[in-house]
Amino acid sequence: MDAITVEHITKKYGGVLALNDVSFTVGKGELFGLIGPDGAGKSTLFRILTTLLLADKGKGTVAGHPIVNEYKEIRKKVGYMPGRFSLYQDLSIEENLSFFATIFGTTVEDNYDLIKDIYVQIEPFKKRLAGKLSGGMKQKLALCCALIHKPEVLFLDEPTTGVDAVSRVEFWDMLKKLKTKGIAILVSTPYMDEATLCDRIALIQNGEILKINSPQQMISNFEKPLFSINSTETYRLLNYLRVQNFTESVLPFGENLHLITNKPYEVSQIEHHLKISGFSDSTAKTIQPTVEDIFLDVSQPVN
């Protein structure tokens, strides 16, 4: 049985289509990522699946229960970490945790083994008020509170936004461990580099799912000729490549440019062309796409 099923879900706010005919499933013990920028519809989908918001159309199930008719059952069986920190700032770490345990009719001791790995990292500060914690610690506490009733399905809405690079790595390590305990996890993130840490991902933009697959499959299915080009004159080269006939798209990627050509070329052909066009120090190589390359390829231009 799937942990989450979503079928043709659509939601409008006034005239704005927040979600347009979204469908996918998440298996038991699967780590599924919703990858997309701000305003893509990620949070709206979380609210619908956690039974806080009604969809206009479509249906879904969570932990085997239909989201509308059996919302009470779902609420007992899911853990939800909203994008905004929503614990009690004026309660301490341990008070927050025992509060959430009590609400779900359980105790911290009963389910301690599930949160232990995470909780030991913040336990030295257990008397500290939640409002006084650093970003990384708040996030760990929020995860503990979402897990304290042993949920079957975990919803994490942008858990790593605004968190520094070190804490982000630690957080993803924790998710990997939870997965092995059979918990299904739906996680959203705007960071494309986190996509490869998921079992499967859905790329989402403007309320529509652009692609669903495992990140590895998505990468190996990419068929367009893709080159990474390095030059000391990145900006001049960008403007040059943009207007060439062979260019399908060219975008800056840090110190390099990623060029997709409209037909296959050898690296030597590209390099030769650049040399005779006045970019004598430039080097090119063929590369595998990152999830970000794929997202940029299938998504719509801004404005």
Partner: peptide, 11 residues
């Protein structure tokens, strides 16, 4: 962190 908006800004 829209990848396109970000690139536009870096340009």
């Amino acid at each position: 962190v829209d990848p396109r908006v970000r690139r536009q800004f870096w340009e």
